[in-house]
Amino acid sequence: MQITVTLNGRRCTDEVAPDMTLYSYLRQKGCYSVKCGCETSSCGLCTVHFDGKPVLSCSMLAVRADGHSVTTLEGVEQEALEFGKFLADEGGEQCGFCSPGFIMNVLAMVKELPDPTDEQIKHYLAGNLCRCTGYQSHLRAIKKYLAAKQKEAVR
C-alpha cells in the first residue's frame, strides 16, 4: 500500500505492508529514537505525536498514518533537548531507553495542560514506564522545566 505521511514536517510517500506498525515504519525511516519495550501496548516507549496527539506507534498501523502528520523526537530535537537538559541535570535519564517516549509525552502534556499539578503530571505520564529512576527525578525535572518556561513567558 502506498501512504503519504508528513513525517517530522517532511512529506514522505512510501510503500508499506497492510500489517506494518507505525513503529516499524518509523524505525525503517531512520527515526531510531522510537523504541519498543513491550508487545502489549503497555510501556509508552514508542510514543510519537499523531496529528499532535501522543499515541503508541507500536499499536497503530502505518497505513493509518496516510494523510496524517507524525512527529518523532527527531522532529522536535530542540524542544526535546530544552526539556532533556532539565532531565539530565537531575540524572533522570539514566539508561535513556525510555527517555524519547517519555519526553514526547511530556511535550504533549505541556501543550495540553497549561499549569499541571503534581497529580495531573503523574496521571498524564502514567503510561510511560521507567525501571531505572523511580520517577522522582522525572517530576523534579518537569517542575523545573515548567517553572523555567513560565519565567520565560513572563519575560
Partner: peptide, 18 residues
Amino acid sequence: AAVRKKDAVSLVSGKPVY
C-alpha cells in the same frame, strides 16, 4: 557534586546508540 552524565545529551536526544 551533581555532575551531568557524559552521555546524557545523546540519550535525551534519542540518538541511535543502543
